[in-house]
Design a protein around this nucleic acid. Structure first.
Lengths: 254, 254
DNA sequence: CTTCTCTAGGTACAGCGTACGTAGAAGCGG
DNA sequence: CCGCTTCTACGTACGCTGTACCTAGAGAAG
């Protein structure tokens, strides 16, 4: 660390040559992945990032993301609340750990098959399966960039899968963001709808009433033209096809 | 308290002629848009949903969505904290109000021009402009379905714009979700990156280190091939073109 | 052995959403 | 007109949150 940059130093005292720098390391990295899990000095930690993430995920799966509090997770680990802060400096970082642990559930083939649309569809369904296992996940994926080791494995695989398109790397990254975003959104919608039948009923009632009011003619027409409720899986595949098509399309619009 | 009210009453079941139904209406609608703003009986309310939403938005614009608490909003209105609950039964509903108020900022042309790609691009840029004005908005749009009157105006307009494609209404709704989702995600990424130069610097350092580790060969290659940082606006337009292309594509993949 | 750094955990605080109860204002039935 | 009813306004209080700060003690480095 050659950055001899004391930010909050008294301005008049210019040089403080032999002052021990260690006591307050002025800025630890904000990214949890930049902090080593172990520094190797004191007593051995009783927990690991993996076990912490697993405990948090268990809670989130059972009771939703709101139930994941520092106290809850610490208690699940059999630790004191504040002990958790030795592993996870902020709650944000706990969410990062959960996100990456969930990304570890991807079962990625060692090599792309070479059939880009098929590989992408497979990836999408894998992602959707994980989202259905962890309803809280889409919200996290959307909110924060996945950047942990497992998320990078996924990114790397996506880049491999789309390599045959010949698109530049940056463009393929953008495509991945679009791809993931679509799936997240779909999963989230599915869960909102599934969560509460009452909510859905109210929603339908309200929307039809709004459509009938005459203020939204196109909406009304869409409702009138609409057939039966439409199978969600079908809708997913249909829109997925469009997304894949968009990814494969050549940049300059044919 | 004459509340001799078993709460689990079958709502409309067999007539209960002389029981007073009013005392506790067993279930008020969950959707705030289904609750009338005024019932016209007691004293006149000192505030309106609009003014409440405006106050909340002012706070969110200045200090972020986390700063929007019931207490803060009530104080900004010069009201007691609990008075707010007369207008907004849950905080969730306050967010709904904010979301819809923001949707009121769309300046939509009275009629689509007929040039579908151009109209969609215009809509996207309008949305992006609103998102840049209200950094907290993308998070809300992604999290909860926009369903208020202003959101419906937007939906209706989108349906009108995409009408010339000949696609069925349901498909166009799915397309809209994809369209909005893409823009939200892009806006959110932009803000995360812009929020903290330190964060971005750490991120770049971490990613290049990860790429150099050899564990992510495709990522490394993408990094190596990448040119200069790429203008965000350009990236937006480029990906937007793809999204529009996906919307316009015929369902069965040409 | 001494020293230093690390971990574990308790206490405490400010702030959150909101359930509940009281006091008073305004419209409606008589 | 009165009185009843229903609304609004708002204070108090509870359980919960994230986390700053502090005290002990474990165990490697010198």
């Amino acid at each position: 660390m050659p950055s001899s940059k004391p930010p909050n130093e008294s301005p008049t005292s210019a040089a403080r040559p032999e002052e021990p720098r260690k006591p307050v390391p002025p800025e630890a990295p904000e990214l949890i992945w930049l902090r080593p899990e172990r520094t190797g000095r004191g007593p051995k930690p009783a927990h690991s990032r993996d076990s912490i993430a697993a405990a948090a995920i268990t809670i989130a799966d059972a009771e939703g993301l709101d139930a994941v509090s520092m106290r809850r997770v610490a208690a699940a680990l059999g630790a004191g609340t504040m002990s958790l802060y030795n592993y996870v400096p902020k709650k944000e970082h706990l969410l990062d750990l959960m996100l990456d642990a969930a990304c570890g559930e991807y079962r990625l083939p060692p090599e792309p098959s070479g059939d880009v649309p098929a590989d992408l569809a497979g990836l999408a369904h894998e992602q959707m399966a994980i989202f259905r296992r962890h309803p809280w996940l889409p919200g996290l994926v959307i909110a924060r960039p996945g950047i942990g080791p497992n998320a990078l494995r996924y990114t790397d695989h996506f880049l491999a899968v789309t390599a045959p398109t010949g698109l530049p790397g940056g463009t393929r990254m953008e495509a991945m963001a679009m791809f993931n975003g679509f799936i997240c959104q779909f999963a989230q919608y599915e869960q909102t709808a599934a969560a509460s039948a009452k909510w859905q009923a109210e929603m339908v009632g309200y929307l039809t009433q709004a459509a009938m009011s005459g203020a939204y003619p196109n909406l009304a027409q869409a409702f009138a033209t609409a057939g039966p409720p439409a199978d969600p899986d079908q809708a997913f595949d249909r829109t997925l096809d469009r997304v894949i098509l968009a990814i494969l399309a050549s940049p300059n619009g044919s």
